[in-house]
């Protein structure tokens, strides 16, 4: 006699539990949290540098920089100034998980934080499986990559709330098409918000900063109860 025993449990339920704890802790303090993901080199750290330049005087920003081997990104962000920065070196692991983020947060002052941004490890596959307690995933793609990336990495583009196309200063140097990448992304995720900008020239950055500012101010507003 064989017997079937229903389990119906998420494989990453332990990660999800820790992520839920993080989400609670952040929401209690009205801190919006973003999980920034991309392939290596799309410009996550550059975008954060530009963001600090625009917002660090006005808001207290917390940054967690994940990296496989080094603390280089965290050092760049500390050099940019004005933010609490924690590094997570994953020692080879291809993604951040909620346990690592929880540990990093334990070393940060949440009472003085208006926004948390987590720079994930450069990888469009593995980070899609791990909830870090963020409010939303933002996926970055640059104009030097293939505009079919949303179709190749549907898991990530489906779970993201926003896609940012970076390095628009390089549009025209390859056959990357802004229209195609938008169509491909929307076929995977019709609700995706899309921004395009250049961290190099600053073009389009205003819209990103305005969106972030709005996110922070909305989070502060007491909820109607």
């Amino acid at each position: 006699m064989t017997e079937q025993i229903a389990v119906e449990k998420k494989i990453l339920s332990e990660n999800d539990r820790l992520a839920a704890e993080i989400r609670d802790a952040l929401q209690q303090r009205r801190i919006p949290a973003l999980n920034l993901v991309s392939s290596p080199g799309s410009g996550k750290t550059s975008l954060l540098e530009v963001t600090l330049k625009a917002l660090a005087r006005r808001f207290s920003i917390g940054l967690i920089a994940g990296d496989v081997q080094t603390e280089n990104d965290a050092q760049r962000l500390r050099a940019a100034g004005g933010a609490q920065v924690q590094a997570i070196v994953t020692n080879g692991a291809c993604h951040l998980d909620a346990r690592m983020v929880g540990r990093a947060l334990a070393g940060m002052n949440l009472e003085r934080m208006d926004l948390l941004v987590i720079e994930n490890v450069g990888n469009l596959v593995c980070p899609s499986s791990y909830d870090l307690g963020e409010d939303m995933k933002i996926v970055l793609i640059s104009a030097t990559e293939g505009d079919d990336k949303p179709l190749k990495y549907p898991a990530m583009f489906r779970r993201a709330a926003m896609m940012i196309v970076n390095k628009t200063d390089l549009l025209g140097f390859s056959d990357f098409s802004l229209e195609r990448v938008q169509n491909n992304a929307r076929s995977i995720n019709p609700d995706l918000q899309i921004l395009s900008l250049s961290c190099r020239t600053g073009s389009g950055v205003d819209a990103w900063i305005a969106w972030l500012t709005d996110l922070i101010l909305q989070a502060r507003r007491p909820s109607a109860e």
Partner: peptide, 14 residues
Amino acid sequence: GGDELEIAFLETGE
């Protein structure tokens, strides 16, 4: 769907 990552069930016995 398509993003399932779950333990569905176990089988015991012979």
